[in-house]
Simulated scan of single mutants.
Amino acid sequence: MATIEAIHTATIQVLLADGVGRLTTTRVSERAGVSVGTMYQYYPHKQALLFAIVERQLDLIVRAMLEAAERLEGCDLRTVSDGLATAWLDAKMADLVSSRAIYAIAAEFDLAELMSRAKNLMVEAISPLLRAIPDARFADPDVTAFMLAALLGGTVRVVMEAGSSEDDLERLRQELPRACLGYLKMSACPLCPSDE
């Protein structure tokens, strides 16, 4: 719906211009070109609006990772590692402005439930993918999937929250796949001769 999209866009703009503390439904409605009454029809208060923004962004990222996991099923370790890192970066960088705004919201509100749901979906997607890698075995694919999701999320957040330059983002694009591959190689159990 165009009105909701306008509200979401305006929310991101106000967040980046004024910060979470100065964001009000009135400012967002003015920027979106809708009445405050229309705002309240969709979002009864500021927190509901901000949670909707975060949930939307998390859903886009989780969807991108689920699609990547499906596409990478049965691939070798390096392909899986590179593919997951690239999918994560593509999803986060598709809308850098929104991604950075989400971190500002996360600093102000308790998003544990939303973040936990997203993390669980990521682990549920990555764990079976790790089990299907033909050239590696993991003692506990669920733990490995959890740590890989944490590595992806934490690394990108640190770089993006710092308002990094294009050079930093390009470095991240080059180095994150290597970091993921290194972690997965170190986590993999040695293959027995019948597995090779």
Rank of each mutant, 00 (worst) to 15 (best):
M1G: 15
M1V: 07
A6Q: 14
H8A: 14
T9F: 07
T11Y: 05
I12Q: 13
I12G: 06
I12W: 10
Q13D: 15
L16V: 10
L16Y: 06
A17K: 11
V20F: 13
V20G: 04
R22C: 03
L23V: 09
R27P: 01
V28N: 10
S29K: 00
E30I: 05
R31N: 02
R31D: 03
R31V: 07
A32V: 09
G33T: 08
V34P: 06
S35W: 04
V36E: 07
V36R: 12
Q41A: 08
Q41D: 04
Y42D: 05
Q47E: 15
Q47S: 04
A48C: 01
A48P: 01
L49E: 02
F51H: 12
I53A: 11
I53T: 15
E55A: 14
E55T: 11
E55N: 15
E55V: 00
E55Q: 15
L58P: 00
D59E: 11
L60W: 05
L60T: 02
I61F: 11
I61K: 05
I61M: 12
I61D: 10
V62M: 00
V62R: 00
R63G: 05
M65E: 07
L66C: 06
E67V: 11
A68H: 04
E70S: 08
L72M: 06
G74P: 07
G74K: 05
G74Y: 08
C75D: 13
L77T: 07
R78I: 08
T79H: 07
V80A: 00
D82W: 09
G83D: 14
A85G: 15
W88H: 14
W88L: 02
D90L: 06
M93P: 01
M93Y: 03
A94W: 01
V97Y: 11
V97R: 12
S98A: 15
S98W: 10
S99G: 09
A101V: 04
I102K: 01
I102E: 06
A106N: 11
A107Y: 09
F109H: 08
F109V: 10
L111G: 12
A112L: 08
L114D: 13
L114A: 12
M115S: 07
R117M: 10
R117T: 11
K119F: 08
N120A: 15
L121N: 14
E124W: 04
S127I: 00
P128T: 09
P128Y: 05
L129P: 11
A132F: 02
I133T: 15
D135I: 06
D135W: 03
A136D: 14
R137C: 01
F138S: 11
A139P: 05
D142K: 11
A145S: 08
F146C: 03
F146Q: 15
M147N: 13
A150Q: 02
A150I: 02
L152D: 09
L152T: 08
G154Y: 03
T155A: 00
T155S: 05
R157W: 15
V158P: 01
M160T: 04
M160V: 02
G163T: 04
G163Q: 01
S164K: 02
S165C: 03
S165G: 09
S165V: 02
D167E: 15
D168R: 14
D168N: 11
R171Q: 13
L172H: 07
L172W: 02
Q174M: 13
E175V: 00
R178F: 03
L181R: 08
G182P: 04
G182Q: 10
G182L: 13
K185Y: 08
S187K: 03
A188P: 10
P190R: 15
L191E: 10
L191K: 10
C192E: 13
S194N: 07
E196W: 10
